[in-house]
């Protein structure tokens, strides 16, 4: 039995066949994403409670975020999701060159997202808007408002949600490099490509989180004439 299994590239010894291994991988990945839903879910709960509690602070807080930059990152992530989906498509067809090309595009777009995010964060630190108590001083650069405490609450939610999202992007880029290395080595074929597919699921999930973060954080106060 085991020597029979040894002939199939990519099949681990404790699985009976490729189908079982693929099924296990898929279910495992989806269950992992389930934990991710709950992980971010706790923060979405905090967002809901505090937004209801401090509507004014959230309006003012969202004015501190740049809608053009947030919108740009939204588009970048959506395009990267498309390139990732196409990478999966070409891995299923077993076309190594195109697979590598689309993985590289995804990698570039993911990096662009992080660079934009870096500039957004840096701007906040410059203006004393990081909510840690020894650093937070909105009056330094902005006309004082009556909602500094509430804006601080908005800002920690912003930093924690986008920070965790960015952390997921960084991990994703690390994994993407591994996948590209494997693709480069010719590990994937029409028969064996589940690492690409499973990574794709992760990447799309991170995209979905951003799809919610963008309107909830950036667009909240847009209608009262905020966004720069």
């Amino acid at each position: 039995m085991s020597d029979h299994a040894a002939h199939v590239p990519g099949l681990a010894h404790h699985f009976v066949n490729m189908e079982q291994q693929k099924e296990a991988g898929t279910i495992g990945m989806w269950l992992f994403l389930l934990t991710e839903i709950m992980f971010f879910g706790g923060l979405f709960l905090a967002y809901t409670i505090y937004r209801a509690k401090y509507p004014d602070g959230f309006l003012q807080g969202s004015h501190l975020l740049s809608v053009p930059l947030g919108g740009l990152n939204t588009v970048v992530l959506i395009v990267s999701s498309l390139t990732m989906a196409m990478a999966v498509y070409y891995s299923q067809l077993g076309e190594r060159k195109k697979l590598l090309g689309f993985l590289a595009l995804t990698l570039i777009l993911g990096s662009v997202f992080l660079v934009v995010k870096y500039f957004e964060y840096a701007e906040k630190f410059q203006h004393h808007l990081f909510p840690a108590h020894w650093m937070y001083n909105p009056a330094a650069d902005h006309p004082p408002t009556q909602y500094h405490g509430q804006v601080q609450v908005f800002l920690w939610i912003y930093f924690m949600m986008t920070g965790l999202h960015a952390l997921h992007m960084i991990i994703g880029i690390g994994l993407l490099l591994v996948i590209m290395f494997m693709a480069h080595k010719g590990k994937f074929s029409k028969q064996y490509n589940s690492p690409v597919e499973l990574f794709g699921l992760y990447w799309h999930f991170v995209d979905i989180v951003w799809i919610f973060l963008f309107p909830l954080l950036y667009l909240t106060g847009y209608h009262v004439g905020g966004g720069h």
Partner: peptide
């Protein structure tokens, strides 16, 4: 995962005083 994010937030509150 929910308790993980909760204790993480608690640790942030304690270290950053937010």
């Amino acid at each position: 995962p929910v308790v993980a994010i909760t204790v993480l937030a608690l640790a942030f509150e304690r270290t950053l005083q937010i």
